[in-house]
Design a protein around this nucleic acid. Structure first.
Lengths: 200, 200
DNA sequence: GTACGATATGGAGGGCCACCCCGTTTTTGC
DNA sequence: GCAAAAACGGGGTGGCCCTCCATATCGTAC
């Protein structure tokens, strides 16, 4: 949702050129982030988008905000997935499946994990839901159901789980076989290092 | 082990002034890293050490090498701890205790986790054991014993465990209560998110 | 279709950084 | 002491992030 699409009520709609540049920057950012991860050079993004660096900074005052815009769609997908899974019969599997989905997205979209972690507490609490809060809320529901079904320790928070998932993804992000690694480590964390836990 | 202390056999010993600067840089780096984490400015380190930036780069061609030198002592401590614990009666507790010790060090020494993760595969395979390989070898022993005692899944590698620990530490490094967070998440990973595992 | 105010732009510049070149200084072995 | 070897560090290059402000563009009311 760009800041002032025509559906928005309050603020005046964006000027056409502003809107065009906004979209260009977003596209360039997506490409750059896919290529270089969350630390991609903002100047290069501006260059690729064919705009001045000032324009980029005006539209996205912080790197975090740019990343959030880039990933918003993916995050919404994950939230939708969570809602879907919440209607299933097995809360335990639902939670595990969802966390795996989060991991898959985070690994295949470089920088997503970083974006999901650093949420509000970076001074970017501005308007609108951050990726962080969006995903947290989506997961909370799944976790609550799992807990009711006795499929999750009661002292575990959704923040804990997401931190764990993102930590893992961040750690394996630049390994060649990151996807497999992340999956294995996540399974490990879910079922425990020590044996005798159930086989998930 | 500075590159050419007088005990080393092969290479000529360092010149006195080089040696002095090497030590100064290391001290300054330790202070700066403690203050700003692994991303501390190399120029500031050189400035604090009272040397030119070129001198710093000559002694430590890469940031990674500087970090490794800074943390070598700590890492050696951890390796010694591993050796100690390996003689104890309970391999399961020994492994868990050691991993917790690693986490504690990583959290309280900003940048250590990052240094432990990026091991050889950063092009810094140069001479000598990196922190990464040192700690891996130290842990391998503990894990082997735990596995024999059936206290660790056989398909878990020491690399997996260390990746997990470091990922967690990296993720919580800048939280205010990082220590507690890391401890909790580590316990979680060791015993599993799903209940019914043993209580560690 | 034009004129005008609001809005958006981007190049230039400041501050910071990593890294390297090379003339100069220091140390060492004799 | 002396000369060769070793180490030094100032300053340059190029990159980055971010801001200022003179200029260009857009939307609209007429």
């Amino acid at each position: 949702m760009p800041p002032a699409s025509r559906t928005t009520s309050s603020a005046r709609p964006m000027r056409a050129d502003a809107r065009r540049n906004y979209d260009r920057i977003l596209a360039a950012a997506a490409a750059a982030v896919a290529e270089h991860g969350a630390e991609a050079s903002l100047e290069e993004i501006a260059r690729r988008a064919g705009v001045g660096s000032a324009t980029l900074h005006r539209h996205f005052p912080s790197r975090q905000q740019l990343l959030e815009a880039v990933f918003r769609e993916k995050v919404e997908t994950l939230c939708a997935t969570a809602a879907d899974l919440a209607t299933g019969p097995d809360p335990r599997t639902a939670l595990a499946t969802w966390l795996r989905a989060v991991a898959r997205h985070a690994v295949s979209n470089r920088g997503l994990a970083a974006s999901l972690m650093r949420g509000a507490h970076d001074g970017d609490t501005t308007l609108g839901a951050t990726c962080h809060t969006m995903i947290t809320e989506a997961g909370a529901n799944l976790l609550a159901r799992a807990r009711e079904a006795n499929a999750a320790r009661p002292d575990v928070s959704i923040t804990d789980l997401l931190t764990l998932v993102n930590a893992i993804c961040l750690a394996v992000e630049q390994e060649p076989d990151g996807q497999a690694q992340a999956d294995r480590l996540l399974t490990l964390a879910l079922t425990g290092v020590h044996p005798a836990g159930e086989t998930n």
